[in-house]
Amino acid sequence: MELSFDGDVIEWRGPAPFVFVRVPEEESEEIHAVSRELTYGWGCIPVSVRLGGSEWTTALMPKDGAYLVPLRKAYREAEGIDADDVVPVTLTLGTRG
């Protein structure tokens, strides 16, 4: 399954700051519908991510009824992304690195 959307970049300040793209409600509902078939535990869903000229594999994390796409610093810097930006993302679900 492939999903494309524009997502909000958010920063979560825990013990260390983490940056994510929040998957919108409609797409999160589509992911949730197939999540039992794809999860490898704790509700995490393996995905391939395309954002600008960057592509990588990671896992979506469930949070408050939606999913979060982790954004590593290297990809944020390569694509010029900051917290509070809105970015176009394409996810391919079920892809493991």
Rank of each mutant, 00 (worst) to 15 (best):
M1W: 08
L3P: 03
S4Y: 04
F5Q: 03
D6E: 14
G7L: 03
G7F: 05
D8H: 11
V9E: 02
I10M: 07
P15L: 08
P17N: 12
V19F: 03
F20E: 14
F20H: 10
F20Y: 15
V21Q: 00
R22Y: 05
P24C: 01
P24R: 00
E25D: 08
E27S: 04
E27L: 03
E29S: 05
E30W: 03
E30F: 02
I31N: 01
I31D: 06
H32F: 07
H32C: 03
A33H: 01
V34H: 06
E37Y: 15
L38Q: 11
Y40I: 06
Y40E: 08
G41E: 09
G41F: 11
W42T: 09
G43F: 11
C44V: 15
C44Q: 11
C44L: 14
I45T: 03
I45C: 06
V47L: 12
R50M: 05
L51R: 03
G52A: 15
G53P: 13
G53L: 14
W56E: 13
W56R: 12
T57W: 13
L60R: 01
M61Q: 10
M61I: 15
P62A: 08
D64T: 06
G65V: 05
G65L: 05
G65H: 05
A66S: 15
A66L: 10
V69D: 07
P70I: 06
P70M: 11
K73I: 12
A74V: 12
A74N: 15
Y75S: 10
Y75V: 15
R76F: 14
E77S: 08
E79N: 06
E79G: 01
G80E: 13
G80V: 14
D84A: 07
D84E: 13
D85S: 04
V86I: 13
V87R: 03
T90W: 00
T90G: 00
T92H: 12
T92V: 11
L93T: 01
L93N: 01
G94T: 14
G94R: 13
T95Q: 11
R96H: 12
R96K: 14
